[in-house]
Structure formats: C-alpha cells, structure tokens
Design a protein around this nucleic acid. Structure first.
Lengths: 189, 189
DNA sequence: AAAAAACGTTGATCTAAATCAATGTTTGCT
DNA sequence: AGCAAACATTGATTTAGATCAACGTTTTTT
C-alpha cells in the first residue's frame, strides 16, 4: 500500500525505516470512484493527496458555466488545492478523481507537523513547491502566444499522459481551445 | 539602503537586530539603467534580486523573434529566473530592468546558506515559492478561456501597477494579445 | 541637438478558431 | 439490459482578434 509513497520519499533523501514508516502511517488510503469530487468550490482544502493509482483533476467553473482544467495528477504525484490548503480559504476550485482511484491522504495538521519535524519532509514540501512553480511557469511560457497546434504539441511533449488518459473535453479545457478544434487537430497529427 | 529589505524580512518573523544585519550584509546594492539586461537567455542564474526601487521584467523570446513577458517585479519583491537558479541550467529567459533601478543582489551560495542556517530565511524562501506558485496558478485561471477584455480587467485588478508602469508593447506580450488590440481596449475603458 | 529607430494609435483587411448543427458513440443511471 | 444524457466527430458559418498599413510621438543614439 505504501510502496510508491516510500519510493517517492526515499528518492528525496535517506531515511531510516522507522522514520519512513512513521511518515507513511500518517497517510490514509481512500478509494474513490470515477468522477468523484474530492473537494468542492466552497470547501477548504484539509488534505494533501498522493496518487497511488488513478488520476485527479484540478479544475474550476467560470461564471458562465464553462469548466477550466488546471492540472492533472497521475500516479506518484502529490495534489491538492494549494492556495486553499495554505491559506485555509475556500478553494474556488474542485478536486475530482477522473478514474477509479486509490489515493493516500494526509491531513493538513499532520502534513505541517511532518514538515516541521522531519527535515526530509520539509525538503519534499519545498520540492513540491519548486516543481509546481516551475511547471506553472513552463505552462505559461508554453501556451502564451502560441496557436492551438503548438499547445497540443507542447502538451504531448511535456505531459504525455494527459492527452491519452483524459477525455477530449477535459483536455480541451486544459489547452484553452474548444473540443471541436482539439478533435480536428488530433485527426491530422 | 536596507530599510525595505529589513521591513520585508521582519514582517515574516521576529529576528534580533544582529541576525537581521547579518542577513542584509549578504546583499549587494547594484544600480542598473533602464533596459539593462541582468541575465541572458544562455546564462545561469546566480543571483536572487530584491527590488529596492524600479522594476524588473522576466521575459523570453520565441523562435520567431516574438517577446513574451512572464512577470514584472516592482518595489519590495524578489525576482530571479527561478528554474535556472534552482537547477543551474541555462535560463532560457531574460531578466531586464525596465526602469532605472536599485536592486539588492544576493549570490546563490549565500542565499542557500541563509536558507540552511536562518529559519526565518527558510520561511521566506518557502513563502516566495508558495506565493509564486499561487500567483502563477491565479494567472493561468485568470487568463485561460477568457477574451482579451477580461484579461485586461483581471490584470487591472490583480497587478494594478502593471498597466501603469509598463509599456504597451510589454503589457500586451504579458496579456498574450497584440499591442493594437490592447491599445483599442484601453481607449474604451 | 539632430537623426534614426522604436513605439502608440487607429483604420482596413484577413484568418484561426469559436460557435452552431447534425450524426454516431460512449457513459451513467435505474 | 435498456434508456437518457453526455461526449466525440465533422461540416458550415461567424467572429474576435491578428496582421498590415499609415502617421504622429516618444526614446535612443551619435
């Protein structure tokens, strides 16, 4: 159950087995079905998730009812609605399992206790933030000023799992193009 | 010379005067002229900058010669080419003073030594990352799926200094619209 | 201080991608 | 399993915003 998580942590710093177990024991396994909402727009994020199996989407809905997908987390990655998790404000976004998934969930309290007490875990948190920041920047760069085809190519290169495992509609809402445009582009790739 | 920086640090955690001075002494003052390039595309970022006065732009140039602005740092904010600073790879982006500016510069070595030795500074680094990540996300949300006018309004609300202090061309390249479109929109606001 | 280059603005035209629409296919629900 | 709803695909039409172009105004260079 904790293999992937242990692997993830161990690859970030050497840790003795008991310490590793102590960290893992703070994570609970939750099984969720396809399309299950883990966090709603008005809720406050109180968990950080590690994706053991499956996929989680972070998205929001605009005033006029349109879905906008921000991020897709697949196996071996952490995901939450970070602004809400940090500042304990309503998320204004959704977390949703888009496949039948197995997630390891840690509460915010436990999470920050680990960050304070376990240097390896503090390191991991910093890494999550660094990586998240860099990815977000790369995405801004990869998309800004480019046409639809370039954005699809960027995504194929930088998030190869995305276009394979995610519905057309969701992928389009990630790319910021219409589903029909994405469909047409895929046909001629 | 260090007033703004001291203020910035002190607001993040109480620190005794000598410790605060020790931190500040690692920062050198650099005066730069308008349009001066602080870091070029192929260089590796070795400094973190705190903007005492003026403004710094982070931008890149696409294959076909088009500038894309990612971020504008004004007074009392930190700025660098973070992916390069972290991983010591070529920046693939530029840092540029867009006004005559006064910057406080700390070397990467000193920066990470402070992060390791001064808990307040580690806290500040975490905060920079959290804030950077959240801002980048907000921008992805604020722009994705919206038309040109909405993006201008979002920027007026979330980065009010930007449209005032930055040239039309640069602002347009931040918004991902053409300078003429921005000009037309401003005319009817 | 003069000349050149870059920038800002506004009008006319063009185009990539949105929207609308119809048909077949997959998914979810009882 | 069978029905309803959502989704994918492809064609026809529309449109927001890009590009092109011209002219006045800043900014930079020498």
């Amino acid at each position: 159950m904790y293999e992937a998580l242990k692997q993830f942590i161990s690859s970030r710093g050497v840790l003795e087995a008991p310490a590793l177990d102590a960290i893992c024991s703070r994570f609970d396994l939750v099984a969720v079905h396809r399309n299950e909402i883990l966090l709603s727009y008005d809720q406050i994020a109180n968990y950080y998730y590690f994706v053991n199996k499956g996929a989680v989407r972070v998205f929001t809905i605009t005033d006029d009812g349109q879905e906008i997908s921000r991020y897709f987390a697949f196996e071996d990655t952490f995901v939450t609605a970070l602004p809400s998790f940090i500042d304990q404000k309503p998320a204004e976004e959704y977390l949703q399992a888009i496949e039948k998934s197995e997630l390891l969930r840690i509460s915010r309290d436990d999470f920050y206790n680990l960050v304070a007490s376990e240097p390896v875990f503090a390191r991991i948190y910093t890494e999550i933030l660094e990586l998240g920041f860099i990815m977000a920047q790369k995405r801004i760069y990869g998309f800004q000023g480019y046409d639809a085809l370039s954005k699809v190519k960027w995504t194929l290169k930088n998030q190869p799992k995305l276009l394979v495992r995610v519905s057309n509609k969701m992928a389009a809402s990630f790319l910021g193009i219409s589903p029909s445009t994405l469909s047409r582009l895929k046909a001629k790739l």
